[in-house]
Simulated scan of single mutants.
Amino acid sequence: MSSSGDSSGKLLSGTDLAKEIRESLSRDVAELREKLPGLKPGLAIVQVGGREDSNVYIRMKTKAATDIGIEAHHLKLPRTITEAELLLKIRKLNEDPSIHGIIVQMPLDSDNTINSHLVTDTVSSDKDVDGLNTVNEGRVAVGDLEGFVPCTPNGVMELIKRSGVEIAGSNAVVLGRSKIVGTPASELLKWHHATVTICHSKTKNLSQL
């Protein structure tokens, strides 16, 4: 990202920012639990199979949730689970009042064919903390940023804003157009008034941008 006429870049580190955000969230959760005695914010992390990279991510998410006072529930399902069985599990979590947020760990490590888009759309939009439900994606697309926003693009925006980089009026180049990162990142930059160029595998003369 650069301001008009400035082609220089700045490397941003999220380590210190992540610590600040977790400390702030910890205070927020403590205040919420004080106002609502008996409330135990609950996060369900649904995993299919046992990919080691997914195991690492889940351990990190579980620790982060625990550190700020959220009860993380890891629902590990076998590779043999069918699409119908998985959707039923998710619907039960949607209806569980002790669960306030749901993450389905991707990719799904299953022996069976499972439509991942259908899976993320089955998660209630009110509990879709990853922001991957079509309802939440649509809200971002039209500039409604009050709901759940995909976590990685949201983290990128926080990093840019807290680093003092002026987004409005800047030229931003987004590499990739994935549903999880590239596309929502470009939408967020657009709604923060940057001029956005999206590059992908078919982009020509990428090095000249």
Rank of each mutant, 00 (worst) to 15 (best):
D28L: 14
G50S: 15
I81N: 03
I102V: 11
I70F: 09
F148I: 04
L87K: 09
E83A: 10
I99L: 04
D121C: 00
I99D: 04
L77G: 00
L189S: 04
L93T: 03
R139L: 10
I102S: 01
E34W: 03
S26P: 02
E23Q: 13
K19H: 12
L77T: 01
R51W: 07
L87V: 12
V56P: 02
N154F: 12
T80H: 10
E146G: 14
G14S: 10
N115P: 07
S186E: 02
T134C: 10
L75T: 09
C151A: 13
N112R: 13
A141G: 04
V142Y: 09
V149S: 00
E31P: 00
I102Q: 03
A64P: 00
G38C: 05
I81P: 02
V165F: 14
S4K: 15
T66G: 13
A18H: 09
L206P: 10
I68N: 05
K179G: 02
G182E: 01
S186L: 01
T82D: 07
P107K: 02
N94F: 04
S8K: 14
G131D: 06
A30N: 08
E71D: 14
E95P: 07
K10E: 13
L132W: 00
K92Y: 12
R79V: 11
H100G: 06
K40G: 11
E23Y: 08
K92C: 12
P153M: 01
T122G: 03
P150Y: 10
Q208R: 15
R177H: 09
N171R: 14
T122L: 04
L88T: 14
H100M: 09
L12G: 06
E31W: 01
Q208K: 15
K76P: 07
V46G: 00
D144Y: 06
M60E: 13
P78K: 07
N112Y: 11
T203W: 02
S116V: 14
I180G: 02
N205M: 08
L75S: 10
V149M: 01
Y57I: 05
S4T: 15
E31Y: 03
I99K: 05
K35P: 04
D28P: 10
K190A: 15
E20H: 11
Y57V: 07
P153V: 04
H192I: 08
G50N: 15
Q47F: 03
V149L: 04
I167M: 00
K10N: 13
V149D: 05
G182C: 01
L145T: 08
D111L: 15
A194N: 07
R51L: 11
I114D: 07
A84K: 15
G147W: 08
V46C: 02
S124Q: 02
G164H: 01
V174I: 05
R22I: 04
G42S: 05
L132I: 00
D121W: 00
S7E: 15
I167E: 02
M106I: 08
K61F: 07
T122E: 11
K89I: 11
A72M: 06
V123S: 00
L88Y: 12
N154C: 13
G176C: 07
S3Q: 15
I160P: 02
I180M: 06
K161F: 07
G14H: 05
L189C: 08
V56M: 09
